[in-house]
């Protein structure tokens, strides 16, 4: 399998990969290009792979029809808070489960792992009731608190634990001899070394929060509070049909920044994910 490939084999592989790429890459291209076509062209036949004329007014409509800047901010700050919060909560818990001996550690770990078995969809009804009683419906609290402390962060805790388990025990012994207590060992030794794992936790968590859809539509009811995924689906005409060009423009604005960050940092991104405790 690892032998050098013949030129013919090489060409065949490149060809195969290019064909396979189409459904991965074309939708993004189509989204961006269609969003700048005049509305009359977006369903044109034959399909215009490259726009023949431009209409930038679509983009201004995105901001006119909804408080889109506000919604963008909502999504961004929620995702940022959730990401940072999850990194703190899960690195601490993951470290303790991997490294500290305390009574009932295994039982508690099993209880926490239950969170992996219970998708948030299962508990959405009681969560709604709980936040309703607390007066937090139509606020962002449910979208912040549940991911940081609840089921979604369990996966992050698991990833962190798997990482900390592999950290050489002698490093901590050395730190203890050097005079560090538990918390300082965690902060000065374990955490700095956990950067790759933290990076993938951050990526997962950010994407999870950024993509959250069910929770916002359950918990949020006014346009100022909406997050992006929810807002995108609200660009509809009087009959409830989608205003395609505006939806696509808003979708482009939502997707493109993350995509650009990804392309710039893709090496850390992909390798971070690959080299975390997920290898079985």
């Amino acid at each position: 399998m690892k032998a050098d490939l013949s030129p013919r084999m090489r060409t065949a592989l490149y060809g195969l990969m290019c064909v396979l790429l189409i459904p991965f890459v074309f939708p993004t291209w189509w989204m961006v290009t269609s969003s700048i076509k005049p509305i009359s062209d977006i369903f044109a036949f034959p399909p215009q792979l490259i726009p023949q004329s431009y209409d930038w007014t679509t983009y201004s409509k995105v901001f006119e029809l909804q408080p889109f800047v506000r919604q963008y901010w909502n999504s961004a700050y929620i995702a940022a808070l959730v990401t940072v919060g999850t990194m703190i909560v899960s690195s601490m818990a993951g470290y303790a489960f991997a490294r500290i001996k305390f009574p009932y550690a295994n039982t508690i770990f099993m209880i926490v792992l239950l969170g992996l078995l219970i998708p948030s969809e299962v508990t959405i009804v009681p969560l709604f009731q709980m936040f309703l009683k607390a007066g937090m419906v139509n606020t962002h609290w449910p979208l912040i608190l549940v991911p940081i402390f609840g089921a979604p962060s369990v996966f992050a805790t698991f990833v962190m634990r798997q990482f900390f388990v592999t950290l050489p025990a002698e490093l901590e012994d050395a730190a203890r001899v050097d005079g560090l207590g538990r918390f300082k060992i965690f902060r000065k030794i374990a955490l700095p070394l956990a950067r790759p794992a933290l990076a993938s936790v951050a990526i997962f968590t950010f994407l999870h929060s950024w993509n959250l859809f069910l929770e916002p539509i359950v918990f949020l009811s006014s346009a100022e509070m909406f997050t992006l995924p929810q807002a995108l689906t609200q660009y509809t005409d009087a009959y409830g049909g989608p205003m395609w060009n505006i939806q696509l423009a808003a979708a482009t604005l939502t997707a493109l920044p993350v995509l650009i960050v990804f392309v710039i940092a893709q090496k850390h991104f992909v390798e971070g994910l690959a080299h975390t405790g997920l290898k079985g």
């Binding site: 002698e170 012994d173 050395a174 203890r176």
Partner: peptide
């Protein structure tokens, strides 16, 4: 350990990978 006034050299050396030689040595 820190109150026993001892120093230890480990089998794997246990040098902190994210610190320079000088920081490693001065850490305690």
């Amino acid at each position: 350990p820190k109150d026993r006034d001892i120093a230890m050299v480990f089998q794997s050396y246990a040098l902190y990978p994210h610190m320079t030689v000088a920081t490693n040595m001065g850490f305690s």
